[in-house]
Simulated assay, not measured.
Amino acid sequence: MISNKAKYAFRALLSVAALPEGETITSAEIARRHAIPHKFLEQILLDLKKAGILESRRGKSGGYVMLRPSDTVSFGEILRLFDGPLAPLPCLSRQAYRPCDECESEALCEIRREFGRAYDASRRILDNRTLADALAGAPATPLTGKEERLVG
C-alpha cells in the first residue's frame, strides 16, 4: 500500500498539473478540494518544491505551478520520493540494495525470482505513466505474455 502522504502528493500534483499553463493554485484550495490537512499538505508541497517538480509564487495571484511539464513526472518518481524504494525485497532494489541475510544464492532464490518478475512489471508501469497520462485518461500500454498474468 502507498502512504497517505504519497496519495496526498498525487492529488496535489494532479490538481496543479490540470491547471492551464501559468495559472496557480493555493495550498489552501488544494487542501479544501481534497480534504487534506493543510499543515500536512504544506510539508508535501515543500518536498515537491525541493525535488524541482513544483514552484511557488508569491503575491496576490500566488500559489503553486508545475516547474516541470506533467509529461515528465512519473508515478514511480513521486512514489519513491515519498515512500522510498519500490522493490518488495532489499535484494531487488536498485537504489537501496542489500543482500537478504538468510539467502545463500540470489541467482538460485525462488522468492527473489518470483517477486522480481512482479516488481519489474509494476516498476515498468509506474515509471512510464506520467501525470499527463493520468489527466488525459490515456490507457496504459498493455503488458505482453506472462507479465499480464502477474499483474492482472
Rank of each mutant, 00 (worst) to 15 (best):
R58Y: 02
G59E: 09
G59I: 04
S61Y: 10
S61T: 07
G62T: 04
G63Y: 13
Y64D: 00
Y64F: 10
V65R: 15
M66Q: 03
M66K: 05
L67Y: 09
L67N: 10
L67Q: 10
R68P: 00
S70H: 04
T72G: 10
T72E: 13
S74E: 04
G76L: 05
E77I: 01
E77T: 06
R80H: 02
L81D: 06
F82Y: 08
F82I: 12
D83G: 03
G84H: 15
P85V: 09
L86V: 09
A87Q: 04
P88D: 12
P88I: 09
L89F: 09
L89V: 04
P90V: 02
P90T: 10
L92D: 06
S93W: 06
S93T: 01
S93V: 07
S93E: 03
R94M: 08
R94Y: 11
Q95N: 08
Q95G: 09
Y97A: 08
Y97K: 14
Y97N: 12
Y97F: 15
R98A: 13
P99Y: 07
C100H: 09
C100Y: 00
E102M: 02
E102D: 12
E102R: 10
E102N: 11
C103G: 11
C103N: 08
S105D: 11
S105A: 02
S105L: 00
E106T: 11
L108F: 15
C109D: 12
C109Y: 11
E110P: 05
R112Y: 08
E114W: 11
F115G: 00
R117T: 03
Y119V: 02
D120N: 12
A121R: 05
S122D: 05
S122M: 13
S122Q: 07
R123M: 07
I125V: 11
I125W: 06
I125F: 07
I125E: 04
L126V: 02
L126F: 11
D127K: 08
D127L: 07
D127G: 05
N128D: 10
N128F: 04
R129C: 08
R129I: 12
R129T: 15
T130A: 05
T130G: 04
A132Q: 10
D133N: 15
D133G: 11
A134D: 08
A134Y: 12
L135E: 08
A136I: 04
A136G: 08
G137I: 14
G137T: 07
A138K: 15
P139L: 01
A140M: 13
A140Y: 02
P142G: 02
P142D: 03
P142M: 03
L143K: 04
L143N: 12
T144L: 14
G145K: 05
